[in-house]
């Protein structure tokens, strides 16, 4: 570090160099924490409203542990495949990155497909979010997670495009890293959903 004067240095400030990417990752962690608060409050609301079925169907009557297991398998597997993509990224292997990103999208889309089926089935049998407070809580908690996953899928598609067009540049890698944080975070939230919503709801 050289001094241009007694008080000034001529080093570049953090925002101009490689530290810029570290800041972005840090900022993204902070965003995830605020998202975590949102989910925590949705969980709290769900739990508080468990009994507010207003004479309508309960979780026991509605939830299918098989379907939930299938959704869990798809999502957890998609986290693993994203991890493979991250390993390929570290090895600078562009085609592998693309492969595993595509597999992740497919698995994520499978999750959304199953969840969509679950929601539309419930709505068709009169157990939609407008049936009771309990169901409003359920649809909002699980639906918010599903919305996040859908946005994540869109984001992966965008990243597939970026990898194809730009290659594995530093900015692209930084975005993939943040996307990974996001995707794994959603995985963790799903594990909590499975444990708080589906398991107790059925057992």
């Amino acid at each position: 570090m050289t001094a241009a004067s007694a008080t000034m240095t001529d080093i570049a400030p953090p925002s101009e160099g490689a530290e810029k990417y570290e800041e972005k990752a840090f900022g993204f962690w902070i965003y995830l924490m605020s998202d975590g608060v949102i989910f925590a409050l949705l969980f709290a609301t769900y739990v508080v409203m468990l009994g507010n079925t207003a004479g309508g169907p309960t979780g026991k009557e509605l939830f299918s542990l098989e379907r939930a297991a299938g959704e869990t398998a798809l999502l957890l597997l998609s986290s693993t495949t994203f991890g493979f993509a991250a390993v390929a990224l570290a090895a600078a292997d562009r085609s592998r990155v693309l492969l595993w990103l595509v597999v992740t999208v497919a698995l994520g889309a499978g999750f959304i497909f199953l969840e969509f089926g679950e929601f539309s089935g419930m709505i068709a049998q009169g157990a939609g979010p407008d049936r009771s407070g309990f169901l409003s809580g359920f649809f909002t908690l699980v639906g918010t997670h599903g919305l996040h996953v859908s946005i994540g899928i869109l984001w992966i598609l965008v990243m597939i495009g970026q990898v194809l067009i730009k290659g594995l540049t530093r900015p692209v890698a930084s975005r993939l890293a943040r996307l990974g944080l996001f995707w794994h975070f959603l995985d963790i939230i799903w594990v909590v959903i499975f444990s708080v919503v589906y398991l107790p709801g059925v057992l």
Binding site: D35, I38, L42, P129, G133, S136, G137
Partner: peptide, 27 residues
């Protein structure tokens, strides 16, 4: 985030007929 959650829930009540805060139906 707490404000976001409260307002989104109220918006869902108002726009999509949810029952987070209604008098009846488990709100």
């Amino acid at each position: 985030p707490a404000l976001t959650v409260a307002c989104v829930m109220l918006a869902l009540d108002r726009t999509a007929g949810f029952h987070f805060f209604t008098n009846a139906m488990g709100g």
